[in-house]
Computed example of a mutant assay.
Amino acid sequence: MDTSSWLTINAARDAALKVLLHNVNGPFHGLPRTAGWGYPEPYTRDLLISFFGIGVSGNDILINSIRKVLETLAKNQTPHGHIPSLVHDKQDLGASDSTPLFLLVAGMYRQLTGEHTFLEEAVNNSLQWMEYQSPSDRYLVAQQPTSDWRDEQWVLGYGLFVNTLVYSYLRMLGRHERADKVKQAMGRFTITGGVQHRHVHEGLVVKHKPYYAMWSYKVLSSERFDLLGNSLAILSGLAAPTRAAEMIAWVEEECAALQKSGDLAVSLPPNFFPYTKPGDNDWHERYTFFNLPGEYHNGGIWPFICGFYVAALVAAKKYRLAEEKLLELTRVITITNSGTVDYGFNEWLKAQDGAAKGQEWQTWSAAMYLYAVKCVEERRTPFFEEMRARLPVA
């Protein structure tokens, strides 16, 4: 990448740090805000995901803020080990991704600081809680619709995103035997024949496609593409290098087709595609108001997820493509919906026209930009290199 591009990226990196430092002390017990002006609440999943970027920032103020988040979550953990959806509110429960994110980030924090027994009791309690989330009492965990980060989208049963988190935290915490079992279970095909035979268990592999299904449960599944879950599958090593390369080629080809048809206005992949449209079997009436095609969870462009995609490209050694996508992400984070700031770091953008939507100065948008920059700059993926290196070559 040329010097001019790096000057642009470094200016955006400075802006991301400014956003995170602005958000570091919110109105709820001094915990970080989820966004600069809207979302003053400390949402668990947003703040834990922000550790990816904060952990590579070298900024002690930000790193200590996530330590406070983790310690507060441990105090507000239920007796069974479940982590609340709001850091400060032990009564706000029901999220399927808050506990696995807590376990993953606790492991990442241990790796960063060398405190190998940090929050040991809380971690063990959460590990036990997650084992009870398997309805088959095996290895894949299940969830209720709208219970992960997609509060306006149905993910039923064994969701890809949550199970990639499970796989990742097991590796991060050294629980390799169980991680191997999760990988094996995810590697089974989804059941498409309409009949589930006795002792035949569903998985998340899609026949004749290089990516993992968005979710699967018994004879039901969604084979639409989940960018976040599949990016994590590459980053964690769950997807073998050959599958990762095929998946990336497929994503780029599909996005080129979306651009040609006018369904995608930026050179970054939507969080979810093909978009769900009225009349589709998985269309819900509520989507008319909150989740139209190309918007929000139904194909919106989410900068924080694009940060994960850039990291996945680096993990797959697609360095030139990672640079191209980082430059496009750098352009996208300057777009604002208020026009009052130089960098929007918005929550999401509409796929068809690239218009900024949702809240500006979103904590996880700024943080995942920092992580994407670090990955491209060093051609490595902090926290995940060792995880992939210990896996056998396919």
Rank of each mutant, 00 (worst) to 15 (best):
Arg178Lys: 10
Leu204Thr: 08
Val376Asn: 03
Leu235Ser: 10
Val162Gln: 14
Lys350Arg: 15
His116Pro: 01
Lys207Trp: 07
Ser221Ala: 12
Asp14Tyr: 09
Leu329Ala: 08
Ser168Trp: 02
Ala322Gln: 10
Leu235Tyr: 12
Val87Trp: 12
Gly81Met: 06
Tyr109Trp: 12
Arg224Thr: 12
Asp2Val: 09
Leu321His: 05
Pro42Val: 06
Ala311Lys: 12
Phe384Cys: 04
Ser85Gly: 15
Val105Thr: 10
Ala256Cys: 06
Pro303Ile: 11
Glu177Tyr: 06
Arg224Ser: 14
Ile301Phe: 05
Thr340Gly: 01
Asn281Met: 08
Val200Leu: 08
Asp180Ser: 02
Pro32Ile: 01
Ala316Phe: 05
Pro270His: 08
Glu121Trp: 00
Pro100Gln: 07
Met108Leu: 14
Pro42Glu: 13
Lys357Tyr: 11
Leu112Gln: 11
Asp263Tyr: 10
Trp129Gly: 02
Ile248Ser: 06
Glu120Asp: 15
Ala249Trp: 01
Trp215His: 10
Ser134His: 08
Lys350Ala: 03
Asp60Lys: 11
Tyr39Leu: 13
Ile305His: 09
Met368Lys: 07
Phe289Val: 05
Phe28Ile: 15
Leu86Asn: 11
Glu115Gln: 15
Thr99Glu: 14
Val166Phe: 06
Leu7Gly: 02
Ser365Asn: 04
Asp137Phe: 14
Leu103Gln: 01
